[in-house]
Every structure is written in C-alpha cells, then in structure tokens.
Design a protein around this nucleic acid. Structure first.
Lengths: 222, 222
DNA sequence: GCCTATAGTGTACACTTGACACTTAGTAAG
DNA sequence: CTTACTAAGTGTCAAGTGTACACTATAGGC
C-alpha cells in the first residue's frame, strides 16, 4: 500500500456508453465482468483513471483496451458519485457518451478475458453497479441532441445516401419522416456534398452518394 | 498519512459557479483565496469532497461554508481533470452551476477567513487554477438554457411583475425584447399565475404581481 | 419490353413569429 | 383640481416557417 494521503481519497473511474446502429436498431456496447463485484453481469466498458492521464484519454484508453474500439466521437456525459455506488470503495465515475458508425463495429474481446457485445438499446440485460441509470441518461442525451444538432452524422459511414441518413433519423427519433421534407431540410443545412458517385443497390433507380462536409464536427441547428 | 491505497488516487473537489442578478447585471460569486496556491487570487467557491458525501451535497456544503448561500437551484456542469490543473496533487473537480434570486444575496465571509464577493460576469478579476475556463462554460450553459428552458425563473424572487421578468430575459439574452410579444409568449406557457396584488412603484400605473406556478421546476420549452 | 422497387422532386395551406402605437392608471407639482 | 410625467397594459397584420401530400425517373430481373 505505497500510496498514502493525509485525507481519504475516492477512486476515480471512467465509464463509456457507446452507441451504434446495426440491423436497423440502436445498439449499446457492453462487457461481461470477469471479476467480482457483479461477476458475470454486463457493464459499461470503463475502469480506473491513471494518475497522470486526462479524463477523456482515460475513457478512450479503457474503451480500446476492453473492446478494441477507437477513433469514435466522444463527449462527457455526467459524473456519478453516490457514496454507496460501488461496494469496494468510494468511487467517482466520470461517464462518457460515444457514437460509432456501423463500419467500426469490429469489436474484439479485451485483454483481461472479458467478453464484449452489442445489445439493442431497449433490450438490455441486467446491469452491474448503477450502470442502468447511466445508460438511461445517455439515451436521453442522444435523443435530445438528435433534435437540435448534427450528432446523427457520427453514426454514419464516410459516404451514404439520403435514404440511409433518413433511416438513421427515423430510428433515433422513433418516428417516420416525410421524404421530401427531410431532404429539403437536410440539404438546406449545407452540411452535405454529393460525391458524384451513385449507389446501385438492387433492381431500382440508383441513389446519389453524399459525404458530410465536416465529419468531425457536431453543429447546433434549428 | 493514515489513508493508504494500492494504487494512486486523485483528490476530488467540487467547485460552484453561482450567478445572480444585481444592479441590472449578471453577477458571479467568487471568494478570495487565503492559502497558497494562488493565495490572494479570486476563485470559485468549492473544496474537497468528503469521503462519505454525495457530490451535489459536497458542492452545497462548500457553498454554504464559504459564502453562507443555501437553497439555490443547482445542476452539475462538467468535470475537469487535466493532470496539471492543480500544482499540489492530481485533482478532479466536479463543477456545478447555480442560480440565486437577488433576495438571497446576503453573502457572509466564510469560516476560514476568506472574503466572498459578487463580480459582474463580464468584468472578472484574475482567477486561480483553470477557473476562468469553468466560468466560461457556465456562462455558455446559462445563455443556452435561457433560450430553451424556464431557468430564468430561478433568478426571480417569489413574486414579480412581467416587466421585471422581461428585464431579466433582456439581461440574460443581451437584447431588448418587444413588450407585447414577450407578454404573449410568457403567458402562453401557462407557468405563471396572478397573485391578485399590485405593485405601486413610482408615479405611474401599478403592475400586476405574478408568481411562478412551479418555482422549483425548470421546464424545457419551445 | 414489362414489372417492381427505391430515388427523386414541388406546391398549397396552417401556423408561428415578429413588427408596430396607443390607452390606462397612478404620482407629483403647480 | 388640473396638468404633466412615467411605466403598465393591450391587438392586428404580414412574412416566414413547417407540414401534408402524389407522381415521375431509373435501374435490375425476368
């Protein structure tokens, strides 16, 4: 026990809620815990912050170690710190919210022999710690930001058709949208450009392929 | 040094940005530091989290100890954790954002002989640590929430006139508003009720006094 | 060449937002 | 008591925005 302090210190962890779209459903990435407490239960990827590491770097490192995912859009969500939220010691968890395009779904099991898997966001298994609460907040944040920002672009591959983009909005907002109104609106934002390519995708008229002008940016709109 | 851990632990603090309206200006509450580091500099009220205390409780306790302020609207803002943000040791700061009606402005110097004072939010002195960055974020949050929530009510006393409320919106949004349009809009929200009282306040027609129907609630609007 | 499936396109109506000026009710001064 | 002053209170119209809605275009498969 070489690390000593005059006053008690809590431990600090980061936990990340990663969402993606897969099989026309919003999916959340979870890992199965290999150690107690809550051994065998599913939990958010995350872990202890290193002492000289920035919070966001820690979140990204844990995510990569446990799931292989990297280069995702990530933002801070909330900090959870109920004194009894972990049975081992006092733990403050700085939580993050991340989005992955379907193409980056190639998730590998982590080094500590944990199992990682995607679950439909509305059919989650029993969760460790207060992670159900964290996920609820993350889902609310995603739903809210869908309405007034371009965050949905973070779920898209590099190029896509307008129909594919509309489908993503429909899933996130759980409602069908009018095709003409959606196109009028999304094009009026001037955030897309045509690549000049077409997608031939079955026995019907091919679709123009678009690209986000600023793929790394999330703009506030409306 | 009685508190030992197998791995190094950061310290956790809470810091609070409290805003109020005073002399027709948005004001921020600061304390002058009595101890190094940054001795003599102004800083946000805040301090170390106790080991068995919830984050929000810690923020409220520090605020009360250092400034006497209590019973304010408070929400979590962001968690700051750059490894070098405090020269003493690694410190994670969970920051909060609070609003006080002018009537609760009676601020007393804290127990540890610190000095507390209100500063106009756009004329702040030199600040300790990364507190300038925290305050910038808090001001952005307040400006944004003014547009799509009823957070401005948290700056109002229990009863007020529509002209007083309009004046608060004008200060927060840094623009003048049309009197008829403002009244039409704010009354259409159905969040105010007339008290039946009138305010006689100079040599002119007296104003109806209103009260918020749900003074503790912040609703999303628009 | 005919069938089918998705891509792509314009207009009309309802509603919301924003601009704008005068009357009312009190106080104070002569 | 009359007048002057100040802030409170009130409605309409025009422009812009959002929403509903149906047909044509182009490819593949047979």
């Amino acid at each position: 026990m070489p690390y000593s302090y005059e006053y008690p210190h809590p431990a600090v962890t980061t936990d990340i809620a990663v969402f993606s779209l897969h099989q026309q459903q919003l999916q959340l990435l979870l890992i199965r815990r290999g150690q107690p407490p809550y051994k065998g239960k599913w939990a958010l990827p995350g872990g202890f912050l290193e002492i000289d590491e920035d919070l966001e770097s820690g979140a990204k490192r844990e995510l990569k170690e446990e799931t292989g995912a990297s280069d995702l859009y990530i933002e801070q969500l909330f900090t959870f710190g109920r004194p009894d939220r972990d049975p081992r010691e006092r733990i403050i968890s700085v939580t993050y919210f991340a989005l992955a395009p379907a193409e980056k779904l190639s998730i590998s099991a982590g080094s500590d022999a944990t199992e990682a898997a995607w679950f439909p966001a509305d059919e989650l298994p029993e969760l460790a710690f207060d992670h159900a609460e964290i996920i609820l907040l993350a889902k609310e944040r995603l739903a809210a930001k869908t309405l007034y920002s371009t965050i949905a672009f973070q779920l898209m591959p590099e190029t896509f058709t307008l129909s594919e983009l509309q489908s993503v909005y429909e899933i996130l907002r759980s409602e069908t949208l009018d095709k003409r109104n959606f196109r009028k609106w999304i094009l009026s934002l001037n955030l897309l450009e045509e690549t000049g390519e077409m997608r031939r995708n079955g026995n019907h008229r091919p679709a123009k392929i678009y690209r986000a002008l600023f793929p790394d940016r999330v703009d506030m709109i409306r």
